[in-house]
Amino acid sequence: MTADISQTPDADLLQLHKDGDPDAFGELFRRHKDRMWAVALRTTRDPELAADAVQDGFLNAFRRAESFRGDAAVTTWLHRIVVNACLDRLRRIKPTVELGDTDVVETRDHHASVEVRLDIQEALAKLPEGQRMALVLVDMHGMSVAEAASVLDVADGTIKSRCARGRAAMAELLGLP
């Protein structure tokens, strides 16, 4: 371990972690937890889901440090892991329908709304992962093309084309003109 771990570059910290240094990953967490929290919150739009996804993401990174190939920055690798953890958490959410003392029209409208959401989720699940992730980040979570490109570590143009193809496929799957 280096004398001042706070000055060690991220890639070196990850290597130290892989080599068994007990403090190295903690320093990576300290450095990047706030940025990963912001990514998770933008992706999930829910503080509780974001907190769980950040925890999942860092646990996955800790356990799978060997998968880091060094092709990209450690922060990019962490972004991808945290976004995937967010998307996994979002996929697990099942829409709930609470029927209270509402009149029949409101219940019917609510039921139709739930059916539309389920149809959209089903159609999204049929898209290739790249298109699905781009659409979720841009169309559902309001990220800019540049933000989504940064999170997914692809060019802006790639996000634009994935969104365009994904929207066209969604329209076809949903039977829209």
Rank of each mutant, 00 (worst) to 15 (best):
A73C: 09
A72H: 09
V54R: 00
H111V: 12
H111C: 14
V116P: 03
S113E: 14
P95H: 09
R108V: 14
L124D: 12
A61E: 02
D101G: 05
R89M: 10
A112T: 12
L99V: 15
H110R: 15
V54L: 05
V74M: 02
C86K: 05
H111T: 15
R89G: 11
S113L: 06
E106S: 13
L124Y: 15
E122S: 15
V97Y: 11
R92Q: 09
V114H: 01
V116R: 10
D56G: 10
D88R: 12
A73G: 05
H79R: 03
T107L: 15
R63I: 09
T75K: 01
V54M: 01
Q121W: 06
R91V: 03
T107I: 15
I81F: 00
G57I: 02
F68L: 01
T75I: 10
D109C: 08
R69H: 10
A72V: 13
F68N: 00
T96H: 06
D71L: 12
V82P: 01
D109P: 01
A85K: 09
K126I: 11
L87Q: 11
I93L: 07
V83W: 01
A61R: 04
D56M: 11
T75V: 02
T75L: 07
Q121F: 07
A123N: 06
T107V: 15
R92N: 06
I93V: 07
H111E: 11
I93C: 03
T102Y: 12
Q121C: 11
Q55D: 10
Q55T: 12
R108E: 13
L90V: 09
I120Q: 05
S67A: 14
R117E: 10
D56Y: 05
